[in-house]
Structure formats: C-alpha cells, structure tokens
C-alpha cells in the first residue's frame, strides 16, 4: 500500500499554493539532477564518480569519455528533452480541448508523426536522420490539421474534435501496423523502434535541434499559459476578454504538433507522459497553466529519466522500453491520487 500523499493535496489559499509550487519545482529539479547523475553512472561499464567528473571535464580516460559523451549523456539529455516535450504537449492539448483526458497520442498526432517517419525510412533506407524531424512534423501537422478541420465541419465542439482524433488515430495506427506486417529486416527494426519507443538513437546534432525547439516553446510559454487559462471559460468568454482565440488555438496546435513530432522522430512513440503527468500535476498545483506548463516540462524530464533508468537496471542487461516502465510507475500513483480525492480538477 502506498503511503498517503497528504502534501500533494491542493491548498486553497493562493500563498500556500505558490509555496507548494516552488517546493515542487525545487524537488523536481533536484530529482532531475540526481537521476541525471545516476544515468551517467549506470551501464554495463562501471564508471566511478571521480572518473565521471573527469570525463565530463574532458580530462578522463578515453574509453570513459567516449561512453559518457557519446552514449550516456546524449541518452540522458534526449530522455529529459523528450519527457519535457511530451508532457508539455499533453498539457497544451488538455488545455486546448478543455478536456483532461485529451492527449496528442489519443488524437493521432504522435501516430501521424511515426507513420510519416516510418514511410520515409522504408522508401529511403539510407535517409539522413536529420530529415526525420521535418518528416515527422509533416505527418503530425497533417493529422492535426485534418482533426481540426473535421471537428469544425459543422458546429465546432470539443467532443467532435476528440471523436475525429480518435478515428484518425485508429486509421493511422492501422496503417502503421500494416507496414509492420509487410516490413522485413531493417525496416522492421525501425518500425519497432517507433512503436515501442527508445532513447538509444540519441546524437548531438539532433539534440541541438530539439533543444532549440524547446527553447522557442519556453519563450512562448507564458502567453500560451495565460491564453489557455482564459480558454477554460469557453471560446466566447476568452474572446470577450480581448484574447485572440483563433491565434491561440492555431499556435497551441502548432506547438503540440512540433513537440510531439520532434520527440517521435528522435525516440519513437512514448505514451502515458502526455496524458497522465499533466493530470497528476493538476491534482497537486491546480489547473492554472502558468504553473502547470513549467512543472510539466521539468516533471516530464524527471519521469522519463526515471523510467529509462529503471528500464535499464531492473532486468539488466535486458533493456525495457521506457513507455512500458512509465505505465508501470505511473498507473499505481495515478490511481492512488484519484482514490484519495472526492472532486477531480476537470
């Protein structure tokens, strides 16, 4: 039985809520740093703390430096960035649809990105990996655009958006499965990579691209957060407060697609974070997006690092996919939080 998580309950007064937000932010940042150092220490070759510090400063043994700089650090950074991107896109999707059960994966955006990448790699096996991000982006944006168009065909409604997304998701997933069925050899390995999700294919140039995308997203975060807060009153009320609703919706869809597509291109389909983490954090700090979005980024980074660390160590030398580990860690915690509350912040 899990211990009661009383410190996670949402306090009612603004001062306590602000204090709780800062405490949680600090805890998650410390957690990230600890998990990062554990990630760098963990692997088939044991590297001591001193060796690690020397390798990071470029003064260590050649083998240790190679392992740290070419394998472990890129993998850890990819985990952090992909976790942050997935959690942020999930929170944005839930804010946009005003539905705490929405998720970019549920709406087919992740599968669209995976399908576009997989198709390209099957047609062009020696494809430069840098092209995977634009390909995934095209797939994600195409599915996002189709979902959006279908949901606005007659009278706009969020139920219609979710249903259109679910239908498209089924179609895209079926196409991806069809490709798996027809694939052979290397193609099958790539397709499994996208379907299971993995942090093994990290490299520095692509990390630079992902880092830049996250940086631009962070610059827009405050505007998006304030807009999504107002959007929870409904489109008309948000517009009555002078906020450009259509621009907000378009820009939010754009960021959801970009963040999802980038993480899918670099580490395949990793579910669960985008759906569950914003939900859990909303239970703790309340629904205000100015707090929720930054917390989701840092929480997503920590959670994917933790999932990858456990996946690499629990059944070592076998490596379990981070998506599987996420479901195993998150579901009990989520159920525990749900059972502990009478009202949900929906």
């Amino acid at each position: 039985m899990l211990p009661p998580l009383s410190f996670l309950s949402t306090p009612s007064d603004p001062l306590s809520r602000r204090r709780q937000y800062h405490i949680l932010m600090a805890l998650l940042a410390i957690g990230c740093a600890v998990l990062l150092s554990l990630q760098l220490n963990t692997g088939s070759l044991s590297i001591s703390r001193d060796q690690l510090a020397q390798a990071l400063m470029g003064q260590g043994e050649a083998l240790a430096e190679q392992i740290v700089w070419e394998l472990r650090l890129p993998r850890a950074l990819l985990g952090m960035m992909a976790g942050a991107a997935l959690a942020l896109s999930g929170a944005l999707m839930q804010g946009l649809t005003r539905n705490p059960l929405a998720d970019p994966g549920l709406l087919g955006i992740g599968a669209g990105a995976a399908l576009a990448s997989a198709t390209l790699i099957i047609i062009w096996p020696n494809l430069p990996r840098g092209l995977l991000i634009p390909a995934a982006l095209v797939g994600a944006l195409l599915v996002a655009w189709l979902t959006w168009r279908l949901s606005r065909r007659h009278e706009r409604s969020m139920a219609r958006l979710l249903l259109a997304g679910l239908a498209l998701n089924s179609l895209v997933t079926a196409l991806l499965t069809l490709m798996t069925w027809r694939a052979t050899g290397d193609q099958l390995r790539w397709l499994l990579f996208w379907q299971l999700g993995s942090l093994e294919r990290a490299d520095w140039p692509l990390l630079g691209v992902m880092g830049s995308i996250l940086l631009f997203a962070i610059i827009r975060l405050n505007w998006l957060a304030r807009g999504l807060d107002l959007l929870s009153m409904g489109e008309a009320s948000c517009r009555h407060l002078g906020w450009p609703v259509q621009r907000l919706q378009r820009e939010t869809v754009f960021w959801i697609a970009v963040l999802t597509a980038t993480s899918v291109a670099l580490c395949g389909l990793i579910g669960f974070i985008g759906l569950i983490l914003p939900h859990i954090l909303r239970l703790i700090v309340g629904p205000g997006h100015t707090r929720l979005l930054p917390l989701c980024m840092i929480g997503g980074a920590a959670l994917l690092l933790l999932a990858d660390l456990l996946g690499r160590t629990l059944l070592a030398p076998q490596i379990l996919p981070p998506g599987l580990m996420l479901a195993l860690i998150g579901t009990p915690l989520f159920i525990h939080l749900l059972l502990g509350r009478r009202a949900l912040p929906m």
């Binding site: 809520r17 005003r98 929870s232 009153m233 009202a343 929906m346």
Partner: peptide
C-alpha cells in the same frame, strides 16, 4: 457559461 477546469474562485 463554461468552467472546464476546477479553478479557485479567486
């Protein structure tokens, strides 16, 4: 009027 998420009244 909508109130999608459980915001504090304040």
């Amino acid at each position: 009027p909508e109130a999608s998420f459980d915001f504090p009244v304040s």
